[in-house]
């Protein structure tokens, strides 16, 4: 099975298409693939524990990451973030690419 690193820079608050992107991530994971969803830019607006994010909450069988700079830029502190989202640096993207992971900016 393949490894996928998906980059999401929007949130469902921006566009309903983002829910389809989350579903794509879920479908890839359900297909037995190893999937990482990296939230960056306004994509991190779903990361707060208090955000209403039903579609994101369904993503239980993949890895959720959030870009540290995007969070800091928006004043979102680490203790505000959902427990299943890991805060990482942008280098996560290039490390995935370097190991041959299929990387897509949704």
């Amino acid at each position: 099975m393949a490894k996928y690193f998906l980059i999401e820079s929007r949130s469902p608050f921006d566009s309903p298409e983002v829910n389809n992107n989350y579903q794509l991530a879920l479908d890839l994971a359900n297909g037995g693939n190893q999937v990482t969803l990296f939230l960056v830019e306004n994509g991190v607006f779903v990361a707060r524990k208090t955000a209403q994010t039903e579609s994101l909450d369904k993503l239980t069988n993949l890895t959720l990451l959030a870009d540290d700079f995007s969070l800091r830029e928006r004043g979102i502190s680490t203790d505000e973030i959902k427990n299943n989202i890991k805060v990482v640096e942008i280098s996560s993207v290039v490390e995935a690419m370097a190991t041959g992971t299929k990387t897509m900016w949704l």
Partner: peptide, 17 residues
């Protein structure tokens, strides 16, 4: 379908969005 869309990726080395 959306589900077939995800499965399609396995046939390609890279996926460009």
């Amino acid at each position: 379908s959306r589900l077939e869309f995800a499965n399609l990726f396995n046939n390609y080395d890279q996926v460009w969005t």
